[in-house]
Structure formats: C-alpha cells, structure tokens
C-alpha cells in the first residue's frame, strides 16, 4: 500500500480541480436552494452550458476564446434558465425538479447524438479550445508546484479557479446581505408572503436561477478547460448530485457551506478511490469482488448513500444550524 499516494491524493481532492468545479456548482445550488428554495436537479446542464458554450464557440463556430467565455458564462446559462424557469417557476417546487432532471437527460441524448456530431463532437465531445487560456500560463509546464501536487498547467487552472471562486464567494456574501438577498430568503420561506408585500416572486426566482446557473456554468467551464475537453459523460445527470451532496454536507444557506462541503466531499472521494484502487492492485480485494473499473462506480454509490444519510440524519449539514436552514424545512 502506498500511503503517501493515498494521502497526497486525498489532499489534492481537498483543494484541487474537482473541488473547484463542484464548489462553483454547489455555490450556484446554494443560491437556488439554500437562499431561494428552488429545487434544481439539473445543475449538471448548467455546467455543460459553460463547457459547451466555450468549446462550441471556439471549435464549432470558430470564434475566439473571449467570445467563448461570453457564450459559456452568460448566453448559454441564461437561455437555459429561461427554458427551464419560464414554465415551472409559477408552479409548485417539484415541477422545477422534474424539468431540470429532464433537461439533464435531454442534454445527454443531444450531446451524444451522432447526427449532431459536427456541432457537438457527439460522444467524444470537443477538444483543444482553451489554448488561449494556457498561453497566459506563467508556470513552467515541466515543473511541479504547491507541495508537488500540481504540474504547471494544472497549477494555472487551479490558481485561476481559486480566484474565480473567491469572487463568487464575495458576490454571494455581498448580495445576501443586501435587500435583494432578503427578498430571496423571504421567497424561500413563503412565496405568498413575499408577493403580498409587493415582491415579484417569479422574477426574483428567475434571477436566482440565472445567477446560480451562471456559477454552475463557471464550474463546468473550468472542468472543460482543465481537461481541454468537453465531453457528455462529464455532465451526466448524476453529476448534479455531487454538487448537492457538497451543498448539504457543508450546510445550505451558508456562504462558505458549499466550499467546505466540496472540499470534504472530494477529500473523501479521492481517498476512497485511491484506497480501493490500491487494495485491488495489491490483491487485498480479489478480482471477483471488484476490479479497476468498478472502483469508479463505488463513488456514485457513496454519493447516493451520502444523500440518504444526510437528508435523514443531518439535514442542516456539518456546519449549518437547524434554526437557520435545514433540508428538513417545510
């Protein structure tokens, strides 16, 4: 057993790329669910909007990287929020849940469809669209940084990721202390009350969906930039629930909740991943019980189990307080 690798990988999960992607996605969900009470089960599609917005702009449409950013961070997520929000935000909460999860499935089918190959690259997705991003990389590609955890290109992605994440945290923190955030929280508590006081609940919910969606798109875009590829399987329905677990784990309606949750989640996931792989490789677990590819499936089981246990036993998350916000609220 290589305990050094296990510890190193766990720590990398704590602060590395997936932590950034999913912190951003969970920050978006926090805006949706934690502050506004919207049940968005399609955050993966917002992530995909960021990834595909950038990659399709550059690869399919031949635009430059900066137009790609605009498309991926602003245009695609806003369109998506309108498509999912307009029909559902007037209705009870579970309709948004159903439509967002349906949108995930639609994305999967459309993105993998060979008939749209020249637009989306189908199953293989699109690659090599973030060269401009790496052109600015001040780090040496051949060297390792930050306790040797990241090579040059990764360090650049992670650094920019941390900066963007800090900006998003600042935005959430600022807006949630403002009258705007107060209206969102009022809608979460009781939409009719907010409406009776002259607040356009529908429009505020739409804004929340849009802005949280943009945070998700940022997360997805980083994922695409980090691997220089936008592939359908990186944004399947279940990906949404990694962000949900991060959110509930850290505590909804806390500014730092999603970040703490994502860090802990990816620390745990990377640990179990590497730990199990080592067990399999070193023959502690016979091939008949588990092989290398099945290790990847275990993390999804953990996500499912995590959702169940958190929702039942710790709905307010690790750092949350029941008085303020818990999954268990009516």
């Amino acid at each position: 057993m290589d305990w050094g690798a296990i510890i190193q990988n766990s720590f990398r999960g704590f602060i590395g790329e997936p932590f950034i992607y999913f912190s951003l996605a969970a920050m978006g969900l926090n805006m949706h669910y934690g502050y506004t009470g919207l049940l968005n089960f399609g955050q993966a599609v917002f992530m995909a909007a960021g990834a595909y917005g950038l990659s399709m702009a550059v690869v399919t449409l031949g635009l430059n990287f900066w137009w790609g950013l605009l498309l991926g961070i602003v245009v695609f997520p806003l369109l998506l929020a309108l498509i999912m929000g307009v029909p559902t935000l007037r209705l009870r909460a579970d309709y948004l849940a159903i439509v967002t999860i349906a949108a995930s499935e639609m994305f999967r089918i459309i993105a993998r469809s060979p008939s749209l190959d020249r637009w989306t690259g189908s199953s293989d997705g699109l690659t090599a669209f973030a060269n401009t991003f790496y052109d600015f990389n001040p780090f040496d590609k051949q060297k390792r940084y930050f306790f040797g955890l990241f090579i040059g290109n990764q360090m650049w992605v992670v650094l920019i990721g941390w900066i963007v994440l800090s900006i998003v945290v600042l935005i959430v923190w600022m807006t949630m202390r403002s009258p705007w955030g107060r209206v969102l929280r009022a809608i979460r508590e009781d939409e009719d009350a907010a409406r009776s006081l002259g607040k356009n609940a529908y429009w505020f919910k739409m804004q929340s969906l849009m802005i949280g969606g943009m945070f998700g798109a940022l997360g997805g875009m980083f994922r695409a930039i980090g691997t220089q590829s936008a592939q359908p399987q990186n944004f399947i329905t279940d990906v949404t629930f990694f962000a949900w677990v991060a959110l509930i784990l850290g505590g909804a309606a806390k500014v730092g909740g999603p970040i703490a949750g994502a860090a802990i989640l990816y620390g745990i996931l990377n640990f179990t991943d590497v730990f199990l792989r080592q067990l399999v490789e070193n023959g502690y677990v016979p091939e008949s019980v588990m092989d290398g590819t099945q290790v990847g499936q275990v993390r999804f089981m953990l996500i499912g189990l995590g959702l169940i246990l958190l929702a039942i036993y710790r709905p307010q998350g690790i750092f949350g307080t029941k008085e303020e916000m818990a999954l268990d609220d009516r």
Binding site: D94, M301, I308
Partner: peptide, 19 residues
C-alpha cells in the same frame, strides 16, 4: 420529515441502487 428531504432521500436511493 419535509417533502424536500423525502425527495432528496429518494434521489439518494435512486443513485445508490442504480450503481
């Protein structure tokens, strides 16, 4: 338990069983 909590639990089971 709230319906949202129940909803999330059912999603948890869905993912868990599926995998």
């Amino acid at each position: 338990a709230s319906l949202v909590a129940a909803l999330v639990v059912s999603i948890g089971f869905s993912i868990f069983f599926r995998y």
